[in-house]
Amino acid sequence: MGSNPALKGVVATTIAALFAVLTALGVGLPTGVTAESTTTLILQLLTALGALIAVGQMVWHAIQTRYVQVPKDTGPAASSGPGATSGPPKALVALVVLVALGALVSACSPAPGGGAASPSSSAVLQDPRVQLALGCEAYATAAGMAAAAIRAGDVSTEGVQRIKVLRGELGPLCEAQAPGTDLPAVLVRLGAAVSEMTNIVGSKS
């Protein structure tokens, strides 16, 4: 049936929503900055804004792909073309974004007596175990979507093999959580692999 850009948009939106939550929570903030400081607050707002823009772009791309490129005139092509008969994912995309927004709001809402995050929140976020756990959440999200796409036959044979390689590389990372691990490198690798896995899903031509 060809590639499914709308599906890719939904998948990308889901992944982006996860990363929006992670970035808004300040995982990437430099350590040593007090949570109450204005700098931290500004950084959190900026990262949240950037994440929202990224999510918005992906949603817009999904909607554009779904609706704008479909001929609007009547005829056989209009009733059988992509997006003409199957249910549009508009409501789904909106719901996923709303959920992500809810998480963003809760993450950025002022804690009692503190700024965007309380000192204890900052301590939690700087805990290496938590950071790796969030990376594993990203992997779990990508793996879950990849599994569903493969079962639906929406991934090419080559894509399945590449996902298999990525799985073999990333799966053990989440289980090890060994002290002394080069955490930034692991998180970067997790993020890159999640992005690649997202691109593979829906790439069947």
């Binding site: 599906l7 959920v99 809760s106 804690a111 938590v130 979507m145």
Partner: peptide
């Protein structure tokens, strides 16, 4: 796939909320 996307999105949000609660 739609159900999977929805489930993953909700779980991601839950993870974020749990982190917020931890703090």
């Amino acid at each position: 796939l739609v159900a999977a996307a929805l489930a993953q999105g909700i779980q991601a949000a839950i993870a974020g909320y749990r982190l917020y609660q931890a703090g």
